[in-house]
Design a protein around this nucleic acid. Structure first.
Lengths: 265, 265
DNA sequence: ATGTCTTTGTGAACGCGTGCACAAAGATGG
DNA sequence: CCATCTTTGTGCACGCGTTCACAAAGACAT
């Protein structure tokens, strides 16, 4: 999973647990594939395997939606596809705006997985005047001056932020002020939003760092002893590069950091 | 966060909980920003706010790494940056290959957040011969025939899959066979890998679907009564579009689905 | 030195999510 | 109509993660 999870207290959403909601799209994907192969029914076991989860978990997840299965048989594929789609709100049209048409924004604009799920790219917005009018993935880019107008006219409630981190918060603020209540954030920053607005974060760098952690684990199973020893006692103070205290000045070579210089936009 | 989480039983990694590991990059980001502003120390409260988490959680997270703070003062920024970097394995160089240089692959290749964290794009690989040799983000694309050779020569252990879903599993198999033990998967498919290999998934479509779910919640707070009633009794059978039973044939218009036709690559 | 004040580090309680294991439900065959 | 077999739906227990709340630790002033 990518990472995101800047949710409100989570919890109640008419009973359906967050963890279950997060898996519904997974089930839906597997079911859609079965549907295309005209498979009429599936058992929890088969579907669970296709979705990559435990079958008990799948059954419990479905139990939150209702009793849609038939004991001794399994689940009706078409029916489940509809029920899950409805539960996720995919039976209606969701206009989406993408702000920040750099490499990533352009990739998102051309992403096929949106249209097939009821999401419609209503507009592409960028702050660069040179981009205005230029078609990306068949959709002309509009200038960010018109952001509010676009949101309101199209009744957009979902916004995707693919701008550099430096301007993400202000873009976010404008989106929210204009009426957007759900945001998918690709910029590497923590966005603060008022209550009632959902933010999900996707951070490529974080995913890689998590992988690196496990990779390091796997690689140095024995060299760990050395590292651990260093941390153990206060000897760490003597061993580790930057002194635990002092060295206030910016001694570290300023790396490109990540606040700016991310995603050309 | 994106979504991914196709982990092994999770659990022990020398004590540090998965949830904590997933937050370390967040803290690191906030700390790096402070470091650039030459801030010498931070309290758990301040840092927590910058990272968007609870201060108690942050302190507990840090407690897994050791006692790096000073009571009454806070944490030494430079020292913490180093400790977290080391824990995440970012003090070493991680060569990464990106397979599938479509819109998304190209965006990833040009992503600034990689280099700044010790990740180095060692190679870009694509199956299209027309792409071979063409520079993307300054790096010449290589043909997938050479995949194994590239992995081995560069000692790559982390691979990024940005291909269409249809070929993701076979690309994954080849990567693993060649020695890759960590995979970041952007293709909308469940990848099966042998034990010892980590897979993290980022699925843009899933993130949007989760947002749509909450959005629907927010929008129809009263129209829910109507929907619930329909599901309640067996009347659902009479109301809902696809009949719970029968209708075996591929009546559904084959939508672009998601197995193929995703990410041009 | 001693007292006060700030902030960490953590014990303990709580809640959510997961997985087992089984009873209930229905299909199917005789 | 009854027996058997399959598969769902769920009660229950367990473990991880989160949060509270506070004692211990150190800085700082007097």
């Amino acid at each position: 999973m990518a990472t995101g999870r800047t949710h409100r207290p989570a919890t109640r959403s008419r009973g359906i647990p967050e963890a279950t909601v997060a898996r519904l799209p997974l089930y839906l994907r597997a079911l859609t594939a079965l549907s295309e192969r005209s498979v009429p029914t599936v058992s929890s076991e088969e579907l669970a395997a296709a979705a990559g989860v435990n079958s008990a978990k799948l059954r419990k997840d479905f139990s939150y939606l209702g009793s849609y299965g038939t004991r001794g048989v399994g689940y009706d594929v078409e029916y489940l596809v509809y029920q899950i789609s409805r539960e996720l709100g995919l039976t209606q049209d969701w206009p989406v705006v993408i702000v920040g048409i750099g490499n990533l924004g352009a990739a998102l604009a051309g992403y096929g997985g949106f249209a097939s799920r009821g999401f419609r790219v209503a507009a592409l917005i960028d702050a660069d005047p040179a981009m205005t009018g230029k078609p990306v993935a068949g959709i002309p880019v509009q200038h960010s001056d018109d952001l509010e107008k676009i949101i309101e006219e199209d009744g957009v409630s979902i916004g995707v932020i693919a701008t550099p981190a430096g301007v993400a918060q202000q873009v976010c603020d404008r989106l929210v002020a204009a009426g957007v209540t759900s945001i998918l954030n690709f910029a590497p920053t923590v966005l603060s939003v008022p209550d009632g607005v959902d933010v999900r974060k996707v951070d490529l760098s974080i995913e890689l760092q998590i992988l690196a952690f496990h990779e390091q684990r796997k690689a140095g199973e024995e060299s760990n002893a050395e590292a651990d020893a260093a941390v153990d006692a206060e000897t760490a103070t003597a061993v580790a590069p930057p002194a635990p205290r002092g060295a206030t000045g910016g001694s570290r070579k300023g790396p490109d950091g990540d606040v700016p210089a991310v995603m050309p936009a």
